[in-house]
């Protein structure tokens, strides 16, 4: 039997279902593409095998992975998925095959090339997740919702949802990823995914216009605070930029020059 190209719906469950099928039908894989990409690259369309996403299949694979390398090892693979990195599906598939084929806690084999690559990606995705926990800046709107815009390097919103829900349990908030055009909305009960139509221009300015009357005061105070705690004699801009890379600045109100 030759090699097959597989196509899935682009979701995590879809990829897990695909891995299930690889085991069930003993596919030998040459490529994995998402349905969106498949349409663009006509190259594949004729020979593509379409995988159906099913909860039963993805749950079985999830269980298999957790049994073999624990919840942590499983979450690492999820991080790799959210990295959106080219070739991540094949890397995840290969790694799962390695994990399931070895008896020991294979996710700890730092001498294995794929495992090491997984760890590397996990590290950068985790760093971005952590940065989003740090760099999200809410602005209070007139309607009482705390609103933040973000543009993370990786698709990390699913990874920070619980953190913000636990922490800001008594306020309504929205975190919107303008790069991926979806957001999280917490209404005091559960967190939901939301999408705004493309007709709504979303940027710092449009948010400010809808701001609550107290917003300017606290934003200014924070900006002032940031300046006041700096020790000029210890100036170290290189270190500053290393910790707060410039691409995040436009959403950080302490980094915006304010008048008065």
């Amino acid at each position: 039997m030759g090699q097959q190209a597989l196509c899935y719906d682009g979701t995590w469950k879809g990829l897990l279902s695909l891995i299930f099928d690889v085991y069930a039908y003993k596919y030998s894989i040459s490529a994995i593409v998402t349905e969106n990409n498949a349409i663009q690259s006509l190259l594949f369309t004729s020979a593509l095998i379409h995988v159906v996403t099913e909860d039963i299949k993805s749950a079985r694979v999830t269980k298999g992975i957790i049994t073999s390398v624990g919840k942590k090892g499983y979450l690492e693979l999820y991080h790799v998925f959210l990295s959106e990195k080219e070739g991540r599906e094949l890397l995840i598939l290969r790694t799962v095959q390695y994990y399931l084929g070895v008896k020991e806690q294979a996710s700890k084999n730092y001498a294995h090339a794929d495992v090491l690559e997984v760890k590397k990606i996990v590290k950068s995705v985790s760093r971005e997740r952590h940065r989003m926990k740090a760099f999200i800046r809410f602005q209070l709107l007139k309607d009482g919702v705390y609103f933040a815009i973000a543009e993370p390097d990786f698709n990390v919103l699913p990874l920070i949802s619980k953190h913000f829900k636990d922490r800001y349990a008594d306020q309504k908030w929205i975190i919107y990823d303008v790069k991926r055009k979806y957001g999280l909305f917490y209404d005091g009960g559960e967190v939901q995914e939301i999408e705004f139509g493309t007709e709504n221009r979303l940027d710092q300015k449009s948010i400010s216009l809808a701001g609550h009357e107290s917003e300017i005061l606290y934003s200014t105070l924070w900006n002032q605070y940031f300046k006041s705690v700096n020790i000029r004699e210890r100036k170290n801009l290189k270190l500053h930029i290393q910790h707060v890379p410039k691409r995040y600045w436009k959403y950080l109100n302490e980094k915006i020059e304010m008048g008065g």
Binding site: R232, N236, H243
Partner: peptide, 13 residues
Amino acid sequence: AGICHTYTEDGRC
């Protein structure tokens, strides 16, 4: 969570 929300220009958390 131990989060550093920003860093001053002297590089301190």
